[in-house]
Design a binder for these strands. Structure first.
Lengths: 204, 204
DNA sequence: ACAACTCGCTACACAGATGATGCAAGTCCG
DNA sequence: CGGACTTGCATCATCTGTGTAGCGAGTTGT
């Protein structure tokens, strides 16, 4: 599953011969700078990205033909890490609660560093879109297992719960830059399962 | 409080004499079209906005000197409705749970129609920023009251809870275009207070 | 060392968006 | 009705961002 890795493709786009070492380094520098810059301002110009990377704008254009190609490569990079993070948590085999916690921690680790690229779930790149779709399915499958195991209530709506889960992860990634992923994961899972209310008030 | 209304300013920017009836209508049409267009694509051009409003682009520029001015006016409009919606729920005087529910329903009613403009909380306009800051304070005050009343657990972190609450409202506004505000408000409050987990599993 | 590669710089072409202006036709309101 | 206002249209200037090309200097890897 999550067959992103099946083609065993490398960091560089398929079909290109290997780059010289310094060129590879420059490319990485640009992508990291793009992530930093675009996460602050999604409309940032190539000029700003180049400046953040400490290279000339023409160099950026040499490595990435168009702005779209740059963002696409960024999305592929982040998506690979995203899929790997989810996969490593064994969301389909581990006990639901363990899988939920581990997946949350892993994803948070990626999300804090690749926030912009991961927000581009509806990418023009079909591979990126497919992976995000797969992860969504995996997530809902996990929630169904959790419901059947009695971890989630029997009456919860799975798609809504997934949306809430995504939103909680997003908020946690935004809010806690200083806290470590485990602490944040605990917060997210705890909030998702228990909410913020007292156990049994006679409300509504 | 929420002294947005203290200056008794009208819909039109301060300092301008009243517009003729048709001009006022055109202005409203443009603002509504801008909201529709920009909520779909935040980078939409003046041309697209004008087209959506059924007017010439030059007319838009006549009413709003710059693009920034248009967006700013939009933000002021939405902010006024936002503040009024919160105020109408008596968040500082009604019983916490009632206030929470009513505020949620009111805000959802505004948010579904003015999603783009309300997402511009960190506006360049200091008045808009101040109102959003006031609402944030009101929200946290409400949560503190709720905590003291035993509606929220004693150990919840208020800022985090507020962030979660905002995120839930956002998700609800996105997800349920067809459902009415009351149904969505119930969903949001229910999710916030109870979460999605079963009451007392022996977890963690 | 030497060939191949890479980068910075300058310059240029191009497209799209913004904003201003004047004029003619239509509309509102006293 | 008649003056004031508003709108559409055509036009123009300007600006910003994107993308291309060539040259010289420096670096890499064999």
């Amino acid at each position: 599953m999550l067959s992103l890795m099946t083609t065993q493709r490398q960091s560089t786009p398929a079909g290109t011969r290997p780059l010289r070492a310094d060129a590879e380094r420059t490319m990485t520098t640009i992508l990291e700078a793009a992530e930093r810059t675009l996460s602050r301002d999604p409309a940032a110009t190539m000029e700003q990205i180049a400046e953040a990377a400490g290279v000339a704008r023409t160099t950026v254009h040499r490595r990435f033909a168009t702005r779209e190609a740059l963002i696409d490569t960024l999305a592929v990079w982040a998506t690979q890490r995203f899929a790997a993070a989810v996969d490593a948590a064994h969301p389909d085999t581990a006990p639901p609660l363990v899988a939920l916690y581990q997946t949350t921690a892993n994803v948070l680790g990626v999300k804090t560093s690749w926030g912009f690229a991961m927000s581009r779930a509806s990418s023009a790149n079909p591979e990126v879109a497919r992976v995000h779709s797969d992860v969504r399915d995996t997530c809902e499958r996990l929630f169904r297992r959790a419901r059947e195991a009695g971890v989630l209530r029997a009456d919860v709506d799975i798609p809504w719960t997934r949306r809430v889960y995504y939103a909680l992860i997003h908020e946690a990634a935004q809010a806690g830059d200083e806290k470590d992923a485990d602490t944040l994961a605990t917060l997210v899972v705890d909030t998702l399962l228990r909410g913020a209310g007292t156990p049994h008030p006679d409300r509504l």
